[in-house]
Amino acid sequence: MGTYSITLDVNGESYTLQVRAANTLLYVLREQLGLTGAKPGCLNGDCGACTVTIEGWPMKSCLMLAVEATGKNVTTIEGLQGTAIQEAFIENFAFQCGYCTPGFIMNCHSLIEKHPDADDKKIKEWLESNICRCTSYNEIEKAIKAVLRKR
């Protein structure tokens, strides 16, 4: 199987890479770019541990081929340094082991950006796309609401 030259825009940086057509975005981010914040979990789109944003929308990077991300703005947890949602996760104890936390933060950040007036129903709907087995979702909901109140 051959390789293809692609250019990815990740966290405001442009990278030209050689990838196989079958390489997922998650694989390329972790193995070729060293951005290990997106985590391999289920690898079939159920858990959300690999969530990044594409053009500001949450995307499970295990389901997207790297070649599909060409020409799109990709943001990983490494690109969200110092955001309000990260602080709110800390202040509201919205994580325990931390494995799923980057995916949740990416999803929550996108929710806040896309729906700054999100109500309880919208928040619950968005949180359905990620799974955490260590903590309840109450703390995560509190973190989101804390950021929405400050806006």
Rank of each mutant, 00 (worst) to 15 (best):
T70K: 10
C62A: 12
A94Q: 03
A118R: 11
T3I: 03
N73S: 14
I123A: 03
G2I: 06
G41H: 03
C132L: 12
P102V: 06
Q18H: 11
D119I: 11
D9Y: 06
T76M: 04
T135L: 00
Q81A: 13
E68H: 14
G56W: 03
V147L: 06
M59I: 08
M64G: 00
R151T: 01
N73E: 13
E139Q: 15
D120Q: 14
I144P: 02
L80A: 11
C134E: 09
P102D: 09
N138P: 01
M59L: 07
G34K: 12
C134P: 09
G2R: 13
I140D: 00
G48Y: 04
G2D: 13
F104K: 05
A143Y: 10
C108N: 09
P58R: 13
C50A: 01
T135W: 00
G79C: 03
C97T: 10
R149H: 09
D46I: 11
F89G: 02
E55V: 08
T83C: 12
A84W: 04
I140M: 09
R30T: 06
K72C: 13
L80E: 13
S61A: 15
K145P: 09
C134N: 10
I105Q: 13
A38Q: 10
K114F: 02
T53W: 05
E68F: 13
L25E: 12
G2E: 14
Q96L: 01
N11F: 04
S5P: 07
L80D: 07
F93V: 01
T83I: 14
I105A: 14
I105R: 12
G37H: 07
L63G: 07
L8K: 09
A49Y: 10
A118S: 11
I140S: 01
I144N: 06
L25I: 13
A84K: 15
G12Q: 03
R20V: 06
L65V: 08
G98K: 03
G45S: 05
G45E: 07
V28S: 07
C47W: 03
